[in-house]
Amino acid sequence: MVLQKMFGVLKMMIFILREGSSGGCAIAVSTGACFAAIGSDTGGSTRNPASYCGLVGLKPTYGLASRLGLIPLVNSMDVPGILTRYVDDCVAVLNVIAGHDPRDSTTLAKPYKKIILPPANKLSIKGLKVGIPVEYYSTHLSEEVWCAWQEVAELLEDHGAEIKEISMPNTEYSIVCYSILNQCEVASNLARYDGIEFGFRANVNLSTEKLYATSRSLGFNDIVRNRILTGNYFLLNKNYETYFNQALKVRRLILNDFDKAWEEVQVLLTPTTLTTAPKYNDFKNKTNRDQCAFQDYCTQPANMAGKS
């Protein structure tokens, strides 16, 4: 999470949030401190801050770019995301990082064909089939974002694209499904922070079990502890079918939505976030789960489906 004092509004002392775990990357790129940045994207962490900062944020398809070195959150959804100021820059970075990596077994074995963009004056979107998923009209969608969405759709249509409304009926289940899978994988990935090799170590010598328990309850904050406990609960032998496996089935339904959409259209046009960048005071009053539900509604299904 990144708090940025907006240069223009500094006097008014209003904090605007450039939210998402790769917010730092977004600030660095948008201020010109660097040419491009690589963030991680598990549910929208690259695209959301890019959107808030007026940048290009790309989440490559799962398996297109190697995850080696990426600190995992949800291994089955994590991808290295790209943040740049221009689309050309983004393509340049993607062409470098994409392709099979023998050290990441989940990357696609198929050789990567580099993307070469034609010059702008030769670009055409004539006949491009653009899908607008109706389920993305969330009740929480702000008017400003809704207007921008409309505007872009019209712009595309004016230049020859075919705009088509489509249905992705399982979109609304994505967040709840995500919260189960996220918590399970988080519980698993954070198991290594036991105070022995990694993480905070409490000053307890009574027993190894006591050392683990104290270190981990002191070393993790409420949000993380909550995720670890619920994640482990979902993974208990008696709960595995009810929660984890059920979430995997729902995940498959979400993937099916995408596969069905591709039969009709070539790209989807959706908002990235439901609102423009929130103010700190509005944001801090929400619980972590609401924050997530609010921020990742439009970006998250793509991670579920492994799509870009």
Partner: peptide, 12 residues
């Protein structure tokens, strides 16, 4: 002991 088995996501 409940070993909380989970599919290894890093291996296909």
């Amino acid at each position: 002991q409940d070993y909380r088995y989970m599919p290894e996501p890093n291996l296909p």
